[in-house]
């Protein structure tokens, strides 16, 4: 696949072309502290391609916070249930490598055994233009192997001086560039990708082991005091799970219309950090305590799903700690566990 260079005018040209074919969403700056959000592009000049992170990850476009799965007529005769899949062609413009990894990981999970038709329909209509980034103090992509991706995008932009190197990832990406003004890159410009990556990998916020070791380090860590230490200040507010690009849990609600003519089955974002999440019909709650919920979340990311799908279910984007009002940081938690392990304080067989 080819590599080109595109300037700002070319980016504008590209976005306008894509807008003819699909809804285009891209990062926009928001009010207050450095904060961005994926929003539909109205004016290509309002897009911010150089940003740290968005409040919500791009999963919202494959799996919205609330969506209807089924609608059914009630009343006389048998219930007529209709599946509901609302899809539109979409371009995600300006997605960071960690978030691309996040979407690929959701693909694995949502296509595992039961293929989720709503998720898959949206993902099949989605094209992705990635963009490289500069990590802030909360990012830990270097620790998770997600500082760069070699798939999962149609085009990938790397900022050069006022221009962008464009790597084409797919045939769809090749077609996107047709008719857009680009030029051949120089050898030095192609090297820039590697130079940036080397710089990006130098992060202070990092876990003190190779991430491949995490399942082994988590084995036997269930009874560690680390969980209670970090959970003491947890609100159980779910900010970490809801803003996580890889968290995928939902609740399903049946909403009968007030005139009793129709019912719909909706799913909404849910998460294991919320107190009622593991509550069952009898009123029992399998994870009643904050530390049990915090522990479950981390085991799921770095052990259970890792061993099930062969990759950690964390992309190191840092949204969880960046947005946590009480600064609960998975990097600190993991490093505490590693330190405890070094000291031989592991309780086996937990």
């Amino acid at each position: 696949m080819s590599v080109r260079v595109i300037d700002q005018a070319g980016i504008r040209q590209l976005v306008e072309k894509l807008q003819q074919e699909a809804k285009v969403v891209a990062p926009h700056r928001r009010e207050g502290r450095d904060q961005w959000a994926f929003q539909e592009v109205t004016d290509p000049d309002l897009i911010t391609l150089e940003y740290t992170t968005t409040t919500l990850p791009p999963k919202q476009f494959a799996w919205p916070p609330r969506e209807t799965l089924i609608r059914a007529r009630l009343g006389e005769g048998p219930v007529q249930a209709e599946p509901v899949v609302e899809v539109e062609p979409l371009v995600l413009f300006g997605v960071h490598p960690c978030d691309i990894y996040g979407l690929q990981s959701l693909d694995i999970a949502y296509c595992h055994e039961h293929v989720d038709p709503n998720y898959v329909a949206r993902r099949q209509q989605m094209r992705i233009v990635g963009v490289d980034c500069v990590p802030d103090e909360w990012c830990f992509c270097a620790s998770m192997g997600t500082a760069s991706v070699d798939s999962g995008y149609d085009l990938f932009l790397t900022p050069l001086d006022g221009e962008y190197l464009v790597e084409v990832g797919t045939e769809a990406g090749e077609a996107m560039l047709e008719g857009i003004t680009t030029r051949e890159p120089t050898a030095a410009e192609i090297k820039e990708v590697k130079r940036r990556l080397a710089k990006k990998l130098d992060q202070d916020h990092k876990i003190h082991t190779d991430y491949h070791n995490l399942p082994l380090r988590f084995a036997g860590a269930a009874n560690s005091p680390v969980w209670e230490k970090h959970a003491e200040r947890c609100y159980s507010c779910g900010t970490c799970v809801l803003t996580c690009p890889l968290c995928m849990c939902f609740d399903v609600l049946d909403e009968i219309k007030l005139d009793l003519s129709e019912t719909r089955r909706d799913r909404v974002w849910d998460g294991c950090m919320l107190e009622p999440f593991a509550e069952v019909a009898s009123g029992e709650n399998f994870r009643e305590e904050r530390f049990q919920r915090l522990r479950h979340r981390h085991f799921r990311k770095y052990a259970y799903l890792f061993t099930k799908f062969g990759r950690p279910y964390c992309c190191g984007c840092g949204r969880c700690v960046r947005q946590c009002l009480v600064h609960i940081d998975p990097v600190e938690i993991i490093n505490d566990l590693l330190e405890e392990h070094e000291k031989g304080g592991v309780t086996h067989g937990a």
Binding site: R30, E31, G32, R33, Q35, A37, T55, L56, Q60, P65, R66, Y235, S236, C237, G238, T239, L242, T243, V268, W269, G271, L274, E275, P276, Q323, L325
Partner: peptide
């Protein structure tokens, strides 16, 4: 569960950041 859940579902930025 706390209101933060509905803020996140709505795509709001945390009001503390404002």
């Amino acid at each position: 569960y706390p209101l933060c859940v509905e803020c996140k579902r709505a795509g709001n930025d945390c009001v503390f950041w404002k």
